[in-house]
Measured scan of single mutants.
Amino acid sequence: MAMNGTITTWFKDKGFGFIKDENGDNRYFHVIKVANPDLIKKDAAVTFEPTTNNKGLSAYAVKVVPL
């Protein structure tokens, strides 16, 4: 089920960042999981599918909501 969130941290040079989800949890995401990576920036609103990996909470099918 899709969730909403906000990008809180973005490491462009490393290709990953973190999203604060609607429950207040931080989720890892990688640029290859983003549909529109050219719009990635700190504080951008996103929708995504929540999941977990071996390191904890993460996100896939991430879409940055255009302003």
Rank of each mutant, 00 (worst) to 15 (best):
M1F: 10
M1K: 14
M1W: 10
A2W: 11
A2V: 15
M3T: 05
N4E: 08
N4T: 14
N4W: 13
G5E: 00
G5M: 02
G5H: 01
G5A: 03
T6P: 00
T6W: 14
T6G: 02
I7F: 01
T8C: 11
T8N: 07
T8I: 12
T9Y: 13
T9R: 13
T9D: 11
W10V: 04
F11A: 03
D13L: 10
D13V: 09
K14G: 06
K14A: 09
F16R: 02
F16Y: 14
F16E: 04
G17F: 02
F18V: 07
F18Y: 09
I19H: 00
D21F: 02
E22I: 07
E22G: 05
N23Q: 08
G24F: 04
G24H: 05
G24C: 09
D25N: 09
D25R: 08
N26G: 05
N26T: 14
N26M: 15
N26P: 05
Y28A: 03
Y28I: 07
Y28L: 05
Y28C: 06
H30D: 12
H30I: 08
H30N: 12
H30G: 06
I32R: 15
K33G: 14
V34F: 04
V34Q: 03
V34W: 03
V34D: 04
A35K: 14
N36W: 05
N36L: 05
N36T: 07
N36I: 04
N36P: 02
P37A: 07
P37R: 08
D38M: 11
D38R: 11
D38S: 11
L39C: 13
L39F: 11
L39K: 11
K41V: 10
K42I: 15
D43V: 03
A44T: 05
A44L: 06
A45Y: 12
A45N: 10
V46C: 09
T47Y: 06
T47H: 07
T47E: 08
F48G: 00
E49N: 14
E49T: 15
E49V: 15
P50H: 03
T51H: 14
T52E: 12
T52C: 14
N53T: 15
N53V: 06
N53D: 09
N54G: 12
N54V: 12
K55Y: 15
G56M: 10
G56P: 04
G56D: 04
L57H: 05
L57W: 03
L57C: 05
S58K: 04
A59N: 02
A59C: 13
Y60A: 14
Y60L: 14
A61S: 11
A61G: 13
V62L: 04
V62E: 01
K63M: 12
K63V: 14
K63D: 05
K63L: 11
V65T: 09
V65D: 07
V65I: 13
P66I: 13
L67A: 14
L67K: 12
L67F: 13
